[in-house]
């Protein structure tokens, strides 16, 4: 008995074994760090005149991991008791994190994070599309499976309404590749009006 205890203590503190332990810890750190920082989140535009930096937040079921690293922020997605917590921390500051909650339901919620205004925002199921020919609006609606649309040529764009399950950010990226579309923009939800 007395001979075994010193052997054990030698095994854990022996400097000869320390480099292997450290190597293991470092290896684990790099694996974890690599897992959480490489994937780049897609950005999307709100307005041609504004430099909004909207980063598309993946839906919880689509998120391949729970932490995303942006240039200035770290974003975490966590499901908790039928709710989903979205948390953004600004790097290099000790500010409180920006937290946004959503109820975890079958109804799709399309979220973006505005890095300028530092807040999470929901996208509406409408997008603004600048066309080079507004007579093609009907065929555009049909071919893109949009629900409906209305052209406002005097304003220089059309507004398309999308089915709830279609992600507006993905839709704008896809529709911009079409010949008749010059550009497309998402629309964020306005906070509900509070009666005075």
């Amino acid at each position: 008995m007395t001979g075994r205890i010193p052997q054990l203590s030698i095994r854990t503190t022996n400097p000869l074994f320390l480099p292997y332990g450290l190597l293991g810890v470092l290896l684990l750190f790099f694996v974890v760090a690599g897992w959480t920082q490489t994937e780049k989140l897609e950005s999307v535009s709100l307005d041609p005149e504004k430099e909004n930096d909207l980063v598309v937040i993946p839906a919880p079921e689509e998120a391949s991991k729970s932490t995303y690293e942006l240039d200035d922020f770290e974003i975490e997605i966590e499901s908790k008791d039928e709710r989903v917590k979205y948390e953004a921390r600004e790097k290099g500051t000790i500010d409180e994190p920006i937290v946004h909650w959503e109820v975890d339901s079958d109804e799709p919620v399309h979220l973006v994070f505005d890095t300028k205004q530092k807040k999470f925002q929901r996208l509406t199921n409408k997008v603004r599309v600048v066309l080079n020919d507004y007579t093609q609006l009907e065929s555009l609606i049909e071919e893109t499976d949009a629900e409906s649309g209305k052209a406002y040529p005097k304003l220089g764009y059309a507004v398309l309404e999308l089915p709830a399950e279609k992600h507006p950010a993905t839709f704008t990226k896809a529709v911009e590749k079409r010949a008749e579309v010059e550009s497309a923009f998402v629309i964020v939800e306005r906070p509900p009006e509070v009666p005075h």
Binding site: D47, P48, E49, T124, K126, Y152, L155, G156, V159, E189, R190, P191, E193
Partner: peptide, 17 residues
């Protein structure tokens, strides 16, 4: 900023919206 109603449609002039 933020006072727009849902569904409001913007048009940009030089210097204001």
């Amino acid at each position: 900023e933020g006072e727009q109603h849902q569904g409001d449609l913007p048009f940009h002039y030089d210097g204001f919206t």
